[in-house]
Design a protein around this nucleic acid. Structure first.
Length: 733
RNA sequence: GGGCUUAUAGCUCAGCUGGUUAGAGCGUUGCAUUGACAUUGCAAAGGUCAGAGGUUCGAGUCCUCUUAGGCCCACCA
């Protein structure tokens, strides 16, 4: 063996070897029980980050372990078109380089541009996945926006449309005036901001607002029915008052959603541009008027301010209010939260707009059901399905405290707005002709139908990923064999976005769960526990570490020190330490292979060897001891992997390899042969014991450090075809 | 406002269902060693397990409260 382990050379060589031999395919264990994971498809928005690396490692450990245990193991790879994220990225770049937006290019040209970008990202990402050593079955790769998946999306949409779960409605949505699209509640990011807070004279009342530019249409004044200050006003009373652009008639509304403690306890409402106001208006059947257009400019209702952008209009409006003596006072340092689009950063302007929604509270008769406790024909809602499968423990969570978070999210869940006005994504399979609406998988044959211009929220297609990636709606062989999947492993930050949506879509569309176990990993932070972000400049490309210390070192460093679900502070020291560990392992192998086996027996396993020498009692004390520790290590590693305590498994292995095997056992062997020219086996095969212990150790380490273990394994005389497909060492007597 | 979560050696963290002298990596100190490995070995220093109370034969581990962080959700006109 070479003096040093050359990981660069080995990694490329071995990955190609594994892949070309078909070891990543489930068919390598044709008769095993199925074990399946779908890779959370990375967004094609650029390159993979450390979080992806962690995800790949955890999943690869589970997959390699099960494969060695003889399971028919499928790890299905793919990438996600990520609709808005990819679209935003390309449009931003277009603006930076050419000062153009998508409307300047037109739909077709722009989409082609995004597609090209997506393809490049895909290629980079696929390469990175390979570098990490991920044993995914590339022959089954899928994309959330390829033709097959598009078909699946249409089928899913149509079914939900036909059953009335997808509906079109004018509701208040989060509108991004710059990107010209709606975004879902989950995509809204709230940012704290300090601004002025104005108190305005509204007839006999004083009302407070941070947004005077929305107040033109305010003709309802709302107070709490129990507020003693306002008992003389009765619900429905009309009062005349002077307002920004002249006299108006206001109507008194009593509603208990008003906070009596806040300000004067009185407010006016702007139903078109505020969710709470919208709800109050809906409740009492009040008028709603649009004040701001979809570009953020004031409409004719604003009178002289018409056509002005709200940012420019505000100071002018305040000035006018002041001149009219309607401005009572201004608080300067009012801190409130403003809604921004997490995909672009623009301030969200709530708007009432016709959009497509999935109803989570509408009752429908359950279709085909393999869910425990829910029968076909039973009336259910999507919310109930989502709750049920977790409450009944058909799906379990690790760490399980996330269950509570999950429940709370569902309890507060509103109908899911699934339409977007961006261009990159699955086009909504609905066509219009006059007032007619047509929904189908294929366009209507007659002329004159126009397709809905909107695209679907990216999470719609990711929601069906566990089965669309296996060929649904066709009942494929894979689907029958591998669905529901065994484990869904992903970051806890997309619990709502993705995990919950998959549960929703899968229980509804297939009447089964998407996965049996959910394993959530934490965020990878830098050594100072800072979130990695571009603006902080502390992003580490996983491959940078892999290049310096080897992929194996990076892999085991990522899982060595942190329990599932906790955030990881990844330090370079840790990765370097793990490189030293690879070196240790390499040198153990060198030592063991230095000595030719000259004994009459060349045993294939420790059991065989022990039998040969006449039973365990014939072993020397040191040998018996190390074999004993190995057995304990093996069973604890298996146990820890199965219960997702991967860090425990690696710590146990580290301890065993370095401190038990190398420091104690091998040092002891060296001593026992001290002075000898060249150690020989004689009658007691101690080097064979060491070799066999090494082989089992390599196997136990293989899921974590696939490359170096394989490289050593292949160098040991009498090895098998590959450690990847060798049997997991759990069968000691 | 609601929920989750963290506080263990100088630093970063393990410690699963409560059970003998609390562990690892890095760092620190001393010694050794150059035929597997200096990316080494042997040894050492270093912790009132945030604080208070409780349950228990026994608590870092369970319960209550306090203090100080972190995260998520809701969103205040």
């Amino acid at each position: 063996m070479d003096k040093a382990y050359n990981f660069e050379e080995v990694e490329n060589k071995l990955y190609r070897f594994w892949e070309s031999e078909g070891f990543f395919k489930p068919e390598i264990n044709p008769n095993g029980k199925p074990f399946s994971i779908v890779l959370p498809p990375p967004n094609v928005t650029g390159t993979l980050h450390m979080g992806h690396a962690l995800m790949l490692v955890i999943e690869d450990v589970l997959v390699r372990y099960h494969r060695m245990k003889g399971y028919k193991t499928l790890w299905l790879p793919g990438t996600d078109h990520a609709a808005i994220a990819t679209h935003a990225k390309v449009e931003a770049e277009l603006w930076n380089t050419h000062k153009q937006n998508r409307f300047d290019l037109g739909r077709e040209v722009f989409v082609r541009m995004v597609e090209e970008f997506a393809q490049n990202s895909h290629d980079t990402i696929a390469n990175q996945i390979r570098h990490m050593g991920a044993s995914v079955d590339w022959t089954r790769e899928a994309y959330t926006l390829d033709e097959e998946r598009n078909h699946a999306v249409r089928v899913a949409f149509k079914k939900m449309f036909d059953e009335g779960l997808i509906y079109r409605g004018a509701k208040i949505v989060n509108w991004d005036p710059r990107m010209q699209t709606t975004v879902s509640d989950d995509e809204v990011e709230w940012k704290e901001k300090e601004s002025e807070f104005y108190y305005l004279q509204y007839g006999p009342f004083v009302i407070g607002t941070a947004r005077p530019e929305t107040k033109f249409g305010d003709k309802y004044v709302v107070m709490h029915p129990k507020d003693k200050r306002y008992t003389k006003y009765i619900h429905g009373d009309k009062i005349e008052l002077e307002w920004i652009n002249g006299k108006i008639t206001a109507t008194i509304i009593k509603d208990d959603s008003i906070d009596m403690e806040f300000g004067t306890g009185v407010m006016t409402i702007t139903p078109w541009h505020d969710r709470l106001d919208f709800d109050i208006a809906e409740k009492h059947g009040l008028d709603k008027e649009q004040i701001i257009d979809f570009n953020g400019k004031l409409l004719p209702i604003a009178g002289e301010f018409k056509g002005l952008h709200i940012k420019k209009a505000r100071p002018l409006i305040v000035e006018k209010l002041k001149a009219k003596n309607l401005l009572v006072k201004v608080d300067q340092k009012y801190i409130h939260n403003i809604a921004t689009n997490s995909r672009g950063g623009e301030i969200i302007e709530p708007q009432v707009k016709e959009q497509w929604f999935i109803s989570v509270t509408k009752e429908f008769p359950m279709g085909h059901s393999e869910l425990k406790g829910i029968k076909k024909g039973e009336m259910v809602t999507l919310k109930q399905l989502m709750m049920h499968v977790v409450q009944s423990e058909q799906i379990t969570f690790t760490p399980n405290n996330f269950i509570k978070t999950y429940y709370r999210w569902i309890e507060n869940l509103r109908d899911w707005c699934i339409s977007r006005q961006i261009w990159y994504g699955h086009r909504i399979p609905v066509w219009y002709k006059g007032t007619q609406v047509y929904c189908d998988i294929v366009p209507p044959k007659e002329e004159g139908w126009k397709q809905d211009p909107d695209t679907l929220d990216t999470w719609f297609s990711s929601g069906i990923w566990t089965f669309s990636s296996m060929g649904w709606p066709n009942e494929t062989k894979d689907l029958k064999e591998f669905h529901p999947t065994s484990v869904l492993e992903t970051g806890y930050d997309i619990l709502f976005f993705w995990v919950a949506r998959m549960i929703l879509m899968t229980t509804y569309l297939r009447g089964e769960i998407p996965f049996k176990k959910v394993l959530l990993n934490g965020l990878v932070r830098d050594a100072q526990k800072q979130k990695m972000s571009k603006s902080k400049g502390n992003i580490i490309n996983p491959l940078d570490y892999a290049k310096v210390y080897g992929t194996d070192a990076l892999r085991i460093a990522l899982i060595f020190s942190t329990a599932a679900g906790n955030d990881i502070a990844l330090s370079e020291d840790r990765v370097r330490g793990m490189k030293y560990f690879s070196n240790k392992l390499w040198n153990i192998a060198r030592f063991v292979s230095m000595h030719e086996v000259v004994d009459e027996i060349d045993a294939k396993s420790l059991d065989e060897l022990i039998d040969h020498i006449g039973g365990e009692q014939k072993l020397q004390a040191a040998d018996r001891q190390i074999i004993d520790i190995l057995k304990k290590t093996a069973s604890s590693v298996s146990e820890n992997i199965e219960s997702f305590r991967l860090h425990e498994a690696t710590q146990t292995l580290y301890q065993f390899v370095w401190h038990d095997f190398a420091d104690k056992y091998i040092e002891q062997i060296k001593k026992s042969f001290e002075g000898a020219e060249k150690p020989t086996e004689n009658t007691y095969p101690q080097y064979q014991i060491a070799k066999l212990i090494l082989i089992d150790t390599l196997k136990l380490l293989h899921p974590f450090m696939p490359y170096i273990t394989e490289e050593i394994y292949l160098k040991i005389p009498g090895h098998g075809q590959s450690i990847m497909i060798s049997a997991w060492p759990n069968a000691y007597k």
